[in-house]
Write a protein that binds this DNA or RNA. Structure first.
Lengths: 252, 252
DNA sequence: CACCGTTGTTTCCATGCAGATACCACGCCG
DNA sequence: CGGCGTGGTATCTGCATGGAAACAACGGTG
């Protein structure tokens, strides 16, 4: 069972939501110059398509200039508003695309402190500062692989001169290169060593996505020790009510 | 007209897609201990709900342990698979949530070079290395505000020792603090100075999201000069086919 | 003028989804 | 044994979506 992350892109305004189908409709009108031709090309009925245009325009303003009669019987052209709408949608789609495609590393932990929307979460790898929703105590933290920055542990800046709130060191356990992008997996060390003073592996993996160029210039190989940093605002916690014990049953 | 970004979270497997409604259904079953009670609480029909369970289980494996007869007439409990499914969904939702909420900075530009999925894009602020879809020439680049790292321009590391591929300097034009998080807007300088040798403002704004703690330790104030860095893998380009000219018409 | 291909509008029908209802099967409990 | 509250299944109905088809309005073109 391979579960795939999905999403449906939407832009909403004034109670109505614009989805991919609407954007494809606008694109087809743009390409063919008339609503009839667009409906034809998309294999959908002219009547519904035209009604949808009217509906959208009531919400977002003029999207089309429609002429009837005259040369060629008339035609429809998109306004700048419609073009901007398309750009907005595509950009939004690309963002979501990135989220769905980028793998993420997961830290389970419990919330220790809270200041506003931020919180400190105690995890197997040490404390992590993340965006924590109100009322959450046991959480899992998701860090997108494209939000983690790698650096040489000796040359990387001290905490304070950058806006990184989370820095961990770990050793490279695997590298997977393709298309100029390398997916590097680190095994993290615990930040606060256990009482016995030994350095221990936290059994937490952190995946990062870097350009091949970066991987080369950092000299990344399996076994190398690296410093991985990510911002608190790029780490997002979601509550889990079922991790620790069966206090669910007690409450119900 | 205020357009709002939206999305609908989904997990798909084996041709069927699991949406928020399904997750709410699982949650209700978990809370009430029976499908009847869950259907009741959700205000939906038992018949449909039960059919949906069967449908989902055919795709992802057992989600429930259902007993009929016996004490209390029987009941339904979720399996570990179902709980994991819920966690996966909520995490995915949180990720998308971040995208929809985080503002992004937009760079318009044209693609100069390509290596695999990466490309160099010439923008008003200078070259940007980003993920570029195949076949794109004129693009807009979106950078999420939570992916940009700020640093003191003098102390920040040289290119090469980190996996940052994009670094710009700019001056702070506005700060907006709330809930422990500060939204900092930079006016970027051009990276490659124009022929006349003068430093010029590129008229490109870059928005970043940092913790208040970071803003304080960096001493961020309006007018201060900062170095902003972001990874190529966090910058995503989307094609725009309408910026340069009307070669659309020629092809049709 | 008639013709043509558009835009506009209405009516009807097919499809799918979901609630409503009814009925059966099950198994402990009184 | 019958009651009861479950799970399991089938059928009907209502509703929303969207296509099919028909027709009017428009305005250049011949």
């Amino acid at each position: 069972m391979t579960l795939e992350k999905g999403y449906r892109t939407e832009l909403s305004v004034d109670g109505i939501t614009i989805d991919r189908r609407d954007i494809e409709m606008l694109e087809a009108i743009d390409r063919h110059g008339s609503m009839h031709a667009a409906a034809d090309a998309l294999g959908r009925s002219y009547a519904r398509l035209q009604q949808r245009i009217v509906e959208l325009e009531a919400a977002v303003g003029d999207l089309t200039e429609r002429r009837r009669g005259g040369k060629g019987g008339g035609g429809t052209e998109l306004t700048e508003t419609a073009l901007e709408l398309r750009r907005r949608f595509e950009r939004h789609q690309t963002e979501l695309d990135g989220v769905a495609r980028a793998t993420e590393s997961v830290f389970a932990g419990t919330v220790r402190e809270r200041t506003g929307t931020l919180g400190t979460v105690e995890t197997a790898a040490g404390p992590v500062v993340a965006l924590v929703p109100a009322g959450a105590t046991t959480v899992q933290i998701g860090v997108r692989s494209d939000a983690v920055v790698l650096a040489d542990p000796e040359e990387s800046p001290e905490r304070g001169v950058t806006s990184f709130r989370n820095q961990f060191t770990g050793t490279v356990s695997s590298i997977d290169s393709s298309d100029g992008v390398a997916r590097v997996t680190l095994d993290l060390e615990r930040v606060d060593e256990p009482p016995d003073g030994s350095k221990s592996v936290a059994d937490v993996e952190l995946e990062t996505l870097v350009t091949q160029e970066s991987a080369d210039s950092l000299g990344i190989t399996v076994g190398k020790t690296l410093r991985a940093s990510f911002k608190a605002t790029a780490a997002r916690a979601t509550p889990t009510g079922d991790a620790p014990s069966a206090d669910d049953d007690a409450s119900s």
